[in-house]
Deep mutational scan, measured.
Amino acid sequence: MGFKLLSKLLVYLTASIMAIASPLAFSVDSSGEYPTVSEIPVGEVRLYQIADGVWSHIATQSFDGAVYPSNGLIVRDGDELLLIDTAWGAKNTAALLAEIEKQIGLPVTRAVSTHFHDDRVGGVDVLRAAGVATYASPSTRRLAEVEGNEIPTHSLEGLSSSGDAVRFGPVELFYPGAAHSTDNLIVYVPSASVLYGGCAIYELSRTSAGNVADADLAEWPTSIERIQQHYPEAQFVIPGHGLPGGLDLLKHTTNVVKAHTNRSVVE
């Protein structure tokens, strides 16, 4: 069995187990497998329904001669939608809004960016022009300005110390501490036991640490421990890039980060 097929099978099995364990909360999309990078042309966006009122959005972007996937989250909030992270750029984010209108038909009224990198804030200006209120932590807003990236308009308070959590509509926002970046936030959907790890969490097929220019490698494993301790009931975990899975993604990420750190020390 090929690795790609095995990865998709694991996603399907995880979703099936969740649907059985929580039949009222989960209505997993039966329309197909989780979209992969090879299936999404740059400039297009796919939506994948995880649970009743919960979707991931998947886009792709060219970077350094390669094409990478990027995940975000959409959560229903009454007759409105909360968006977590842009679709990595203005063109993708405009396509995301169009796809949401086509498939869901509810307005996106608020959006949260989970850290300051372009795959999370690139497209904020498109959201703002569409009347979406954009939010991020003060740290993310400051770092985005320093980096020359787009800056969300509103500040999220109460997320300055490791372990801080605040309720934001249908989700809980959690600051686990520094990891992929010093400002990275985690998003949890309690009604569906869905954990969105953003770039602080890796997919299972990833074996290298990737972009760690703004990471705190020493603190990252401790931050992941905080996530595990705060959300032990999480059933569906979405990484910032690639295929979702279960809580095993947290341990896998820790292993990859520690291996990278150990290699760096040896070198």
Rank of each mutant, 00 (worst) to 15 (best):
M1C: 05
M1H: 06
M1D: 05
F3Y: 10
K4G: 06
K4D: 11
L5V: 15
S7K: 10
S7M: 09
K8Q: 09
K8Y: 15
K8A: 15
L10R: 10
L10H: 15
V11M: 07
V11E: 07
Y12G: 09
Y12H: 09
L13M: 12
L13N: 08
L13K: 14
T14H: 14
A15L: 12
I17C: 12
I17D: 06
M18L: 14
M18A: 14
I20P: 07
A21Y: 15
S22P: 14
S22W: 15
P23N: 10
P23W: 14
P23I: 08
P23Y: 11
L24C: 07
L24Q: 11
A25C: 14
A25S: 13
F26R: 14
F26C: 10
S27V: 13
S27L: 12
S30T: 13
S30W: 08
S31D: 09
E33L: 08
Y34G: 09
Y34T: 09
P35S: 09
V37H: 15
V37T: 13
S38Q: 09
E39V: 12
I40D: 05
I40V: 15
P41Q: 12
P41F: 08
E44R: 13
E44Y: 07
V45K: 04
R46K: 10
R46C: 06
R46Y: 11
R46V: 10
R46N: 07
L47Y: 01
L47Q: 04
Y48E: 13
Q49M: 13
Q49V: 12
Q49I: 09
A51W: 08
G53F: 08
G53P: 05
V54C: 02
V54D: 05
V54A: 06
V54Y: 01
S56E: 15
H57N: 03
H57F: 04
H57T: 01
I58H: 12
I58D: 03
S62E: 08
F63M: 07
D64M: 15
G65Q: 09
A66I: 15
A66G: 12
Y68C: 04
Y68E: 03
P69M: 15
S70F: 04
G72M: 02
G72C: 03
L73Y: 02
I74V: 08
I74L: 08
V75T: 03
V75Q: 03
R76S: 13
R76W: 06
R76H: 08
R76N: 05
R76Q: 11
R76T: 09
D77V: 03
D77P: 03
G78S: 09
G78W: 06
D79G: 10
D79Q: 10
E80R: 08
L81F: 01
L82Y: 06
L83C: 00
D85N: 03
D85Y: 00
T86L: 00
T86V: 01
T86E: 00
T86W: 00
A87W: 00
A87R: 00
W88C: 01
G89Q: 00
G89D: 02
A90Q: 10
A90R: 10
K91C: 06
K91T: 14
K91I: 14
K91W: 11
K91N: 14
N92L: 01
N92C: 01
T93E: 00
T93Q: 00
A95N: 13
A95L: 14
L96T: 00
L97Y: 02
E99Y: 09
I100M: 06
I100K: 00
I100P: 00
I100N: 01
E101N: 12
E101M: 10
K102D: 13
Q103N: 14
L106Y: 12
L106T: 09
P107I: 09
P107R: 14
V108Q: 00
V108G: 01
T109N: 14
T109I: 13
R110Q: 13
R110F: 06
R110K: 11
V112K: 05
V112T: 04
V112G: 04
S113Q: 03
S113E: 01
H115F: 00
F116T: 01
F116S: 06
F116V: 05
H117R: 01
D118C: 06
D118L: 12
G122P: 06
G122S: 09
G122C: 07
G122V: 07
G122H: 08
G123I: 04
G123Y: 04
D125Q: 10
V126A: 07
L127A: 04
R128A: 13
R128D: 11
A129K: 11
A129E: 12
A130N: 15
A130Y: 13
G131D: 08
G131C: 06
V132R: 02
A133H: 12
A133L: 13
T134S: 07
Y135R: 01
Y135S: 03
Y135W: 10
Y135M: 03
Y135F: 11
Y135V: 02
P138V: 08
S139G: 11
T140G: 04
T140D: 04
T140C: 05
T140E: 05
R142G: 12
L143A: 09
L143K: 08
V146H: 13
V146S: 14
V146T: 13
V146Y: 13
V146P: 07
E147H: 15
E147V: 14
G148I: 04
N149D: 08
N149K: 15
E150Y: 05
E150R: 01
E150C: 04
I151G: 03
I151S: 07
I151A: 07
T153G: 10
H154P: 05
H154E: 10
H154C: 06
S155P: 13
S155V: 14
S155W: 08
S155C: 06
S155G: 12
E157I: 10
L159D: 02
S160L: 11
S161I: 12
S162R: 14
S162P: 15
S162M: 10
G163Q: 06
D164P: 06
D164R: 09
A165M: 14
A165R: 14
V166D: 06
R167Q: 13
R167G: 11
R167W: 13
G169T: 04
P170A: 10
P170S: 10
P170L: 05
V171P: 00
V171R: 03
V171E: 04
E172S: 03
E172H: 05
E172A: 02
L173G: 01
F174V: 02
P176F: 01
G177K: 03
A178S: 11
A178P: 13
H180Y: 07
H180N: 02
T182D: 14
D183G: 02
D183N: 07
N184W: 01
N184V: 01
N184K: 02
L185M: 08
L185D: 01
L185F: 05
L185R: 02
I186P: 01
I186C: 02
V187A: 12
V189C: 02
P190H: 06
S191Y: 12
S191G: 12
S193F: 13
S193C: 05
G198C: 06
C199G: 02
C199I: 00
C199L: 02
C199E: 01
A200F: 03
A200M: 08
A200E: 02
I201S: 05
Y202N: 07
Y202S: 08
Y202C: 04
Y202A: 13
Y202V: 15
R206V: 15
R206H: 15
T207M: 13
T207V: 13
A209N: 15
G210A: 06
N211Q: 08
N211F: 04
N211V: 07
N211S: 05
N211E: 03
V212G: 04
V212M: 08
D214I: 04
D214P: 03
D216S: 10
L217N: 00
L217W: 04
L217F: 05
L217D: 02
E219R: 07
W220Q: 02
W220M: 03
P221A: 09
I224F: 04
E225D: 14
R226S: 06
R226G: 04
R226V: 08
Y231V: 01
Y231H: 05
Y231D: 00
P232Q: 09
P232V: 07
P232I: 08
E233M: 11
Q235L: 09
F236C: 08
V237Y: 02
V237N: 03
P239T: 02
P239I: 04
P239K: 01
G240M: 05
H241T: 01
L243M: 14
P244K: 03
P244I: 09
G245N: 05
G246V: 05
G246E: 09
L247M: 12
L247D: 08
D248H: 07
D248C: 07
L249V: 03
L249R: 01
L249D: 02
L249Y: 07
L250F: 08
L250D: 03
H252F: 04
H252L: 04
T253E: 01
T254D: 13
N255Q: 12
V256K: 02
V256W: 02
V257G: 02
V257M: 10
K258Q: 13
A259K: 12
A259C: 05
A259I: 11
T261F: 08
N262A: 12
R263Y: 12
R263G: 14
V265F: 08
V266M: 14
V266E: 15
